[in-house]
Amino acid sequence: MNRFLRSLLLLASLGTALQAQDVKLLNVSYDPTRELYQAINPAFAAHWKAKTGQTVTISQSHGGSGKQARSVIDGLPADVVTLALAHDIDALATQRQLLPVDWQKRLPGNSSPYLSTVVFLVRAGNPKGIRDWNDLLKPGVQVITPNPKTSGGARWNYLAAWGQALKQKDGSEAKARAYITELFKRVPVLDSGARGATTTFVERGLGDVLLAWENEALLVTEGTGKGKFQIVLPSTSILAEPSVAWVDKVVQKKGTAAVAKAYLEFLYTPEAQKIIAQNGYRPSDPKALKAAGSRFPQLKLFTIADAFGGWDRAHDAHFKDGGSFDQIVVRK
């Protein structure tokens, strides 16, 4: 009996020891990063196993960036969030102190391990001759972009269009507003999400040009729409900085702080940066960007900070109720 008990105890302790070897992370992200993190996760798991002997499994959750942030605020237990814009992660800090307000300073490059920009996707041969932003206003051109009220991707498009008008030699607020007003007259449908807009353009064949993140556009030209579409890079565009952060409140509770932090730091390693480039995102490391070669041509890029004074101000001026977007839609 005694021996039986002891072996039982031994088994139980073995069980907990085995459990200690296993660790689970939940990465709450936005829609188009699924393929990226599917490639990153096994690479990190191997890296972590070699370093600590622990087996790490990473679950992914995807949805619209704003919706995902809302879910984390409501209790979705995300160890790390990898969202489309810093503004959404700020909400975790301001609405429910899930992480410190200065989270963006904790990782290199404003906590953006990968970057992107807004480009034009046109039909093969570029029948409407679209080369730059002003060509979008040519008569007969229809533009597809999702609704900035609901889609994080659409906000980047909107700010790219606004910012480039602002950055032109004789640019001004008034000219930017006029440009955007004209642009949205050429949008036949406002989809609620970036993927929906891509489907409208690619599958349903609506519109002449799709404003899209470069990684989304590359996914189309190298994947489903090979040979049927091509990418046009405008002379100027916005630098999209998707941000990542570990969620302090959650990792403290789960005891996953070390591995969550390591997971995000791994994104900056040469190995991960290469995977990032393969998935159509611009690596934040200049060396990795150079190694990726002609896939990511150079263009003039402005940041949210230098064109709009940061996300908070951009949001208030343009997307809040009564902001510039509302004014334009009402006037239309």
Partner: peptide, 24 residues
């Protein structure tokens, strides 16, 4: 649901997700 792949997806949610990933 929280949309955690392989954990909290139901069939209708899965259909929407793969549709949006171009896996028609």
């Amino acid at each position: 649901s929280g949309h955690i792949r392989g954990e909290t997806m139901t069939l209708p949610l899965h259909i929407e997700a793969v549709y949006n990933e171009y896996q028609f």
